[in-house]
Structures are given as C-alpha cells and as structure tokens.
C-alpha cells in the first residue's frame, strides 16, 4: 500500500473507543523501513491514541499491529520497547526525581540491545547526553530542566533504547524557531542512522521539509496518504485540517 522498501510496522483494522467515542476507527496503514512518516490530523483526531496502540500503552479493541512481521498486538509496552519501538510523549514526561543521566541510563539498561554492565551503559548514556547538549545537566534532576531541555532529554532517552522505530508526538511544540531547526537537523541525523520515524506534528513547514510521506486522520479514520506537498494541497485535507474559514483565508 505504500512506496518502496519493506514494511517495518503494519497496523491493520485498528480501533479504539473511549466510552461512546471512537478515537481510532478501523485504521490500517504501514510504516516503511527507513522513512520519516508524518501522522497528521486536527486536534482530537486520534493521533496520540494511534501511538498508544502501537507502543502498547493502550490495548486495541480490534485489529492487529505487526512489527518486523511479528504480531505484537497483545504484547506489553516494555516488550515492544525491547523489540525496537520507542516513543516520546506529547506532554513531556521525564522521570522527575531522577537525574538527566539516570533517565537515559534506565533506557540504556532495559532497551533493545541493552548494555547490562552498569559502567558501559553509563558511558553510552553520557555520550547520548552530550549529543543532545545536555552534558552540563547530567546530574541535574529532570524536573529542574527547562521545557526545551526536557524535550531533548526525552528523545535522548528514547534513543537510548536503541529503537528501530521511533514515535515522536509533537516534538516541536513549544520550541523557538532556532530550537525547531536544530531539532529538524537532529531528526534527519537519526534517520541517517537507519532509524525509522513516525512523527505527529502540527507545524506544516516542518512536515513539508522533513517527512517522506504523510497520512492524515480525521475522527480516527484515514482520509489521505501520500507525499507531503501533494497531500497538504488536497482540498479535503485543508478542510478538515484547517477548517473552512482558514481555507478561505489561505487562498
């Protein structure tokens, strides 16, 4: 159903309801190995819920999730992480009373291809921190970091689990323009290392420049799929995504 390369993740007929509300409604899509896939949609369209279903934080009501050909629909989140799926949270969630170093260290100790030796894991974690400009903050409690630092810490922590697939939920929200361009460069480096990314983002310019492909959700359903420039110019996408009024303003 999508471009070139083998499929790393397949979601098939996924559904999730909260009470009467269908947050994700019979959704099928695939993530191709090596790509950066944008997951778009208006507020409340089910993007975060899709992440929760892929990462295992919520059980699906129906449908399957396959990762590297393996059915993981019933596996707990920690197992999926050890298989190679890592994520960040829309509202950053550092482990507040642990230091920045220990936040990364736990992931290094438990993630995929983990180092079981504490010393090696600590060295590798320090390397990751310096990659994200957090060396100076290694011994600072995570709750004392700034929002931008916490966002970087969260990505460092996810990478410490050595994922094949990285799910980023609005990683640019709340960042300044300089921080945004630094983050985009960072994401490209991550992709260059062979990690596949799925990214939820409202920043249209970032999506255009970063994503190889996008899918668009509305009310939990897939309404469009394709190259970012092409999809974002489709009128039905503009309509749900920006609302009728803004469409008029845009033209």
């Amino acid at each position: 159903m999508s471009g070139d390369g083998p499929e790393l993740l397949e979601a098939e007929d996924l559904s999730k309801s909260f009470g009467g509300l269908r947050a994700v409604d019979r959704l099928s899509f695939a993530v191709v190995e090596g790509e950066i896939l944008g997951l778009l949609g208006p507020n409340g369209s089910g993007k975060t819920t899709v992440f929760n279903l892929i990462a295992g934080a919520l059980p699906a009501d129906r449908g399957r999730v396959r990762f590297s050909g393996r059915d993981i629909t019933r596996e707990p989140p920690s197992f999926r992480t050890r298989l190679g799926i890592a994520r960040t949270f829309q509202l950053v969630r550092p482990l507040p009373n642990l230091t920045a170093l220990d936040n990364v260290l736990v992931a290094r100790l438990y993630g995929r291809g983990r180092s079981t030796a504490l010393r090696t894991a600590r060295d590798e974690s320090l390397d990751l921190l310096s990659l994200f400009g957090l060396s100076q903050k290694a011994t600072t409690s995570a709750h004392a970091l700034t929002l931008a630092e916490r966002k970087r810490l969260e990505i460092a922590r996810a990478l410490a689990a050595r994922p094949q697939l990285l799910l980023l939920d609005e990683p640019l929200g709340g960042l300044t323009t300089t921080e945004v361009s630094a983050a985009l460069a960072q994401f490209r480096r991550i992709q260059a290392e062979g990690i596949t990314l799925v990214i939820v983002e409202h920043n249209v310019h970032a999506v255009r420049s970063l994503c190889d492909r996008v899918i668009v959700l509305n009310s939990g359903r897939l309404i469009a799929e394709g190259r970012p420039a092409e999809v974002l110019s489709r009128s039905e996408v503009i309509e749900v995504y920006l609302g009728k009024a803004s469409r008029a303003a845009l033209q």
Binding site: A55, G56, A57, P76, P77, S78, T81, R82, A86, R87, F89, R93, P94, L95, P96, N97, L98, D102, L105, V106, A107, L109, Y110, G111, R112, R114, R157, A158, A160, A161
Partner: peptide, 17 residues
C-alpha cells in the same frame, strides 16, 4: 534503576523497556 523508574512513572518505565 528499573524500580526507581517505576516509582517515578510506571507508564514511562514501560515505554523504556
């Protein structure tokens, strides 16, 4: 370390393995 992560936030602990 794993136990400390669980104490701080069980969801996050799960998300990092």
């Amino acid at each position: 370390y794993g136990l400390a992560a669980v104490r701080e936030d069980a969801d996050v602990a799960e998300a990092i393995g």
